[in-house]
Amino acid sequence: MQAASPEETHRLGVRLGGLLQPGDFVGLIGDLGAGKTHLVRGVAEGAQVPHSEVASPTFAIVYPYSGRIPLYHADLYRIADEDELYATGFFDLVGSGGAVLVEWLDRVPGAAPREYLRITLRPTAEDARELQAEAFGARSEALLAAWLP
């Protein structure tokens, strides 16, 4: 799917955030400037997280948000491997009653559970983005179908 602007990427995130349920896991892949932050801010808005709470967890690794459901936002950019991620307590969040949103999932692919939604973002023009979504597991397939009918 195409997003012609950062605002459109944000709107796609809002729609996804409104559909998330506890236990959902969404992994984001894309280079710097690919639009992950616009999508994340939209997801948080759709999950009814107050705008003032949304921050980049680059240095904290994981940031919890309180909204319609608990939302855990992780940024794995500075994580070298699964062992380092394990030491942060990240794996305790998966299946803990909230939804998990992970940027830079490709840096530690083992962070994803067996069932998850993976979204790859690629710039196609100055502000336009291509989003490719893949679902792994029944719940993620249902989430993808509801998000992009």
Rank of each mutant, 00 (worst) to 15 (best):
L28W: 07
T88K: 09
G98F: 03
L105I: 15
P64R: 13
V100E: 01
S52P: 00
F136R: 14
L20K: 02
Q2E: 14
G46H: 05
G27P: 01
R11Q: 15
L39K: 02
Y65K: 03
L28F: 11
H73G: 05
K36R: 11
E84F: 02
E130G: 02
L148G: 00
A3T: 15
A128P: 02
T9F: 01
Y72C: 05
S56K: 12
I69M: 08
G137L: 09
R118Y: 01
Y63L: 14
R118S: 14
A111K: 01
Y65R: 03
R122T: 14
A142L: 13
G137R: 07
G97D: 08
V14G: 07
L143C: 03
S66V: 10
D24Y: 05
S96P: 00
L16E: 07
G67Q: 07
G98A: 05
R118M: 13
E82P: 00
A4R: 14
V62Y: 10
G17W: 00
E115N: 13
D75W: 05
L28N: 05
L12C: 04
I79W: 01
A3N: 04
G13T: 05
D31Q: 14
E126C: 00
S56N: 13
A74G: 10
D31N: 15
P113M: 08
W104M: 01
V100K: 01
T58L: 08
S96H: 07
E126T: 09
E7C: 00
P6W: 12
P6A: 09
L12W: 15
A47Q: 01
S5F: 10
A125W: 00
A74H: 09
D92R: 11
P149L: 09
Q21C: 11
R68Y: 13
V94E: 03
Q132K: 15
G89L: 06
I119L: 13
Y72R: 08
E82C: 00
Y63H: 15
A87M: 08
V102G: 01
E8N: 00
I119A: 06
E82Y: 10
P123E: 14
W104D: 02
Q48E: 15
P57F: 09
M1Q: 10
E134L: 11
R41L: 04
R139E: 13
A133E: 11
R68K: 15
I61N: 11
A80V: 09
R139V: 10
T88M: 10
I69K: 03
L105D: 00
P22M: 12
A99W: 03
G110C: 00
V40I: 12
A145G: 07
Q2L: 14
G27Y: 04
G35Q: 06
R129F: 04
E7K: 09
E126V: 06
A55V: 14
V43I: 15
R15T: 15
S96A: 14
R11D: 14
G35W: 01
I69R: 02
V62Q: 10
P123F: 04
G98I: 06
A44K: 06
L93I: 03
G67R: 03
Y86S: 10
A112M: 08
E126P: 00
A55W: 10
L117R: 03
D75T: 09
I69W: 05
P57A: 11
